[in-house]
Design a protein around this nucleic acid. Structure first.
Ligand SMILES: [Mn+2]
Ligand SMILES: [Mn+2]
Ligand SMILES: [Zn+2]
Ligand SMILES: [Zn+2]
Lengths: 135, 135
DNA sequence: CTCTCAATAGTAATGATTACTGTTACTATT
DNA sequence: AATAGTAACAGTAATCATTACTATTGAGAG
């Protein structure tokens, strides 16, 4: 439960940040690895993981813990909502005007202190809409 | 993306169901394995995984895909909300009266068809409230 | 420019889950 | 009751994402 932070802006971090800024696709660590390797062929996958973790800890990017197997990352650090495609796992941005007035910060009779919530919309991405395979 | 279902109520499934009904703790597959082994020492962990998957597919139990590393299981198939402790990962039931009127089933300009949402409250469990270690 | 230690590449290890494989045991039918 | 068909089983190997380790490099403060 530690929070690594960015102390030095290395080549690796600068390029990861740059590449993440170019897309709106919320890539996985592995996908970021592929994008960055084009410009820095010797980068290690471990570095990508470590840097993504550190930069999200510092608020430069977002780590999306969508309820899939893999974590996804977002170059846009501003808070906003996301939809996850139930068929292929892709994640998209969602600008919903529906205000979420969810009563967080309350005591539950069960004894839990509720301080927040995590919300994720689900649905179908453009591609899977027209070809709805087994979901 | 297949959905295995229960066609035969075996010893293994009956006992898993029984043990899951005794607790309100939302155990992981591994914890269920421990509970069931007391009554059925020769059961295999793979069987526990398969049966939990099959019985949640059939609606006999719930699979909670809380955004932690491990899946958790709930003997209560009725829909209700959950809190996850940010310190230890434990999951509790939450009876919140706050009605969630979230506009699902709409089209996003991004092209996604939004059909639902997944919601999870976060906070601190009774134990971690009084001893707030590094979160 | 020099020094320090944060960060790196490369690789091994971990941990949860899933797949495989030969065997067992429900269930329906002769 | 014996037979057949096949769902489910135990045991084990494999997968996959992620994290840890270790010797080496380089960012950036002074
Ligand atoms: Mn986003
Ligand atoms: Mn529950
Ligand atoms: Zn899709
Ligand atoms: Zn706790």
């Amino acid at each position: 439960m530690s929070r690594p932070e960015v102390k030095r802006m290395t080549q690796q971090r600068r390029i990861i940040l740059e590449e993440l800024g170019k897309v709106t696709s919320h890539p996985t660590a592995d996908e970021v690895y592929g994008m960055v390797r084009v410009h820095l062929p010797s980068i290690s996958l471990g570095t990508v993981y470590r840097d993504l973790e550190a930069m999200s800890g510092s608020g430069l990017i977002q780590k999306l813990e969508t309820c899939g197997r893999q974590k996804r990352f977002d170059g846009n650090p501003a808070p906003h909502h996301h939809v996850r495609c139930l068929a292929c796992g892709r994640v998209g941005d969602l600008q919903t005007d529906t205000e979420l007035y969810i009563k967080a910060d309350f005591d539950d009779p069960g004894g839990y202190k509720v301080t927040g919530y995590r919300m994720e919309y689900t649905g179908l991405c453009p591609d899977c809409r027209r070809d709805p395979l087994a979901i």
